[in-house]
Design a protein around this nucleic acid. Structure first.
Lengths: 127, 127
DNA sequence: ATAAAACTTATAGTTCACTCTAAGTCAAGC
DNA sequence: GCTTGACTTAGAGTGAACTATAAGTTTTAT
């Protein structure tokens, strides 16, 4: 699979894919004899992992760390396990914040609905 | 309340608070006769709103837009209502992505647990 | 065979959201 | 009354994650 096909399939720009490879967020991508990227299923799996984690807001540095451990072999399995658990905790924290913000937004939206329906301002505080 | 007190209470640096005021993410803060910031409850309410929204990842630009509408008066109530609903949708999308990533992390963590417990690699795919 | 399109690397530029620095002003304690 | 420390503004600097550019190579279609 060419970089362009992968780019379209996963909606990441070719520049971003090359960037991920360059900084070590994904392993070196399989190449043709001429040196052109030719993504294997495994390459695509790594890219999919990277975009998933990035989409949730985890920093690239974490991906780099995880890949580095992975490339060091089976002895790093416990370290990888710890890394993943830490990042899960980070995401759970982030979800908590997200839910609090959603509650606050929903409260405000409900007040605006009341204000619009009744034509009356139902609050004094400006926020 | 001084900027330092607010800074400590909400865990935002004074620089960030001044930055929010400067760019219009919060309204101009109440001042003493000498021109020093002296936060009212209302000022703190706006700051709390800003940090909440930022903590969930909404861009500063949205806060600026919302405040601008607010300052234009009651005629912008429907526009503010629409803005808030749009941002709620953004956050719901973000939560969906977050949950997908958590599922993926949990799956990987479970596999690592199995690998560690049994001392056996239970997968061939490297991710 | 050759022109156009897509690829390559290396490096520079952009955006966002702060974060820091410099130079100066103000207020509270001794 | 003066020094210390917190405040002020204006503007420059930082880090993360892309994003774009330049200059050159390779593949594909004719």
């Amino acid at each position: 699979m060419t970089i362009k096909e992968v780019s379209e399939k996963y909606n990441i720009s070719p520049e971003t894919i090359r960037y991920y490879e360059r900084v070590g967020a994904i392993p070196p991508v399989t190449r043709t004899a001429g040196g052109i990227r030719n993504f294997s299923e495994e390459d695509i799996g790594w890219l999919s992992l990277a975009t998933c984690m990035r989409g949730a807001g985890l920093p690239i540095e974490i991906l780099i760390q995880y890949l580095k451990l992975y490339q060091e072999g089976d002895s790093t399995i416990p370290a990888r396990y710890e890394l993943l658990k830490e990042q899960r905790d980070v995401l759970l924290e982030q979800r908590k914040r997200l839910d609090e913000t959603l509650d606050r937004l929903n409260y405000k939206i409900a007040r605006y609905e009341a204000a619009i329906e009744t034509g009356t301002l139902t609050w004094e505080r400006p926020d």
